[in-house]
Computed example of a mutant assay.
Amino acid sequence: MTIMPDKPKISDAERQLFRDNLKDVRPLTVKHHYQAPQPKIKAVARQRLADDRQVLDDMFSDDFCSEDVETGEELLFSRAGLQTRLMRQLRRGQLSVRAELDLHGYTVLEARQAVTEFLRDSLRHGNRCVRIVHGKGFGSKQKLPVLKNKVNAWLQQRDEVLAFCSARPVDGGTGALYVLLKRL
């Protein structure tokens, strides 16, 4: 328990001195109180904006013009300005593959969704080089590489994809791609 000190005693002379000093003081009369205007905050539909961005990210155009490739044909794509040394390392399989997506058995719609999610997750986890196995098309009706052509077109539409090329034979050859992604 703490003991509070007593209030200091004020004498009658001190009280009178205080009153004498304040005898000419009058309270202010304020006719108008100023109130700062409240800032108008626009409502922002953040979730809708995020959803719209996500739709744009997820969209791949099947009308994208890229030449169809044959089953055994190699794919090679590089954005302007990419270092030659980096592209050479990618083609030789010298970059560490951090994640892989195998599209065997997928329909075109399933593959599109899988590629979208795979690229998003790879970027989020900081994976610089990934492999996508699209197959050679031997299982399709016309024995043509349907997913190979689609993946080729889809990847060229994605800004985060710097380059891609067919994998080395031990990693799937012309049925797989090494994909180089931007750093975030």
Rank of each mutant, 00 (worst) to 15 (best):
K31M: 06
K31V: 05
K31W: 04
K31Y: 06
H32T: 13
H32D: 09
H32K: 08
H32W: 08
Y34R: 09
Y34E: 05
A36R: 09
P37V: 01
P39C: 02
K40M: 12
K40H: 15
I41T: 13
I41H: 07
K42V: 11
K42N: 11
K42Q: 15
A43M: 06
A43I: 03
A43V: 05
V44W: 10
V44L: 15
A45S: 09
R46T: 12
R46W: 11
R46A: 10
Q47H: 10
R48L: 13
R48M: 15
L49M: 09
A50L: 12
D51K: 12
D51W: 02
D52Y: 07
R53K: 13
Q54G: 02
V55G: 06
V55F: 09
L56P: 05
L56T: 13
L56I: 01
D58V: 00
F60W: 01
F60C: 06
F60K: 04
S61C: 04
D62N: 04
D62S: 08
D62F: 05
D62Q: 07
D63V: 10
F64K: 04
F64L: 08
C65L: 08
C65H: 08
C65G: 10
S66M: 07
S66W: 01
E67Q: 09
E67K: 12
E67T: 10
D68H: 07
D68R: 12
V69P: 02
V69L: 02
E70Q: 09
T71A: 09
T71C: 08
T71V: 06
T71Q: 10
G72W: 01
G72S: 11
E73A: 10
E74T: 07
E74C: 03
E74S: 12
E74Q: 04
L76P: 00
F77R: 07
F77S: 05
S78I: 00
R79A: 05
R79Y: 02
R79F: 00
G81I: 00
G81E: 01
L82G: 15
L82H: 14
Q83R: 14
Q83V: 15
Q83F: 11
T84K: 15
T84Q: 15
R85T: 15
R85E: 14
L86W: 14
L86D: 13
R88L: 13
R88K: 14
Q89P: 12
L90V: 13
R91F: 10
R91L: 14
R91S: 14
R92Y: 11
R92V: 02
Q94M: 15
Q94G: 13
L95G: 14
L95M: 14
S96V: 14
S96P: 12
V97L: 06
A99M: 07
A99E: 08
A99T: 10
E100Y: 12
L101P: 03
L101I: 05
L101V: 14
L103R: 07
H104S: 12
G105K: 07
Y106N: 05
Y106F: 13
T107P: 01
V108Y: 03
L109R: 07
L109G: 03
L109Y: 03
A111C: 02
A111K: 00
R112H: 04
R112C: 01
Q113P: 00
A114C: 02
A114G: 01
V115W: 00
T116R: 13
T116N: 08
E117F: 03
E117S: 09
E117K: 07
F118E: 00
L119E: 03
L119Q: 03
L119R: 12
D121P: 02
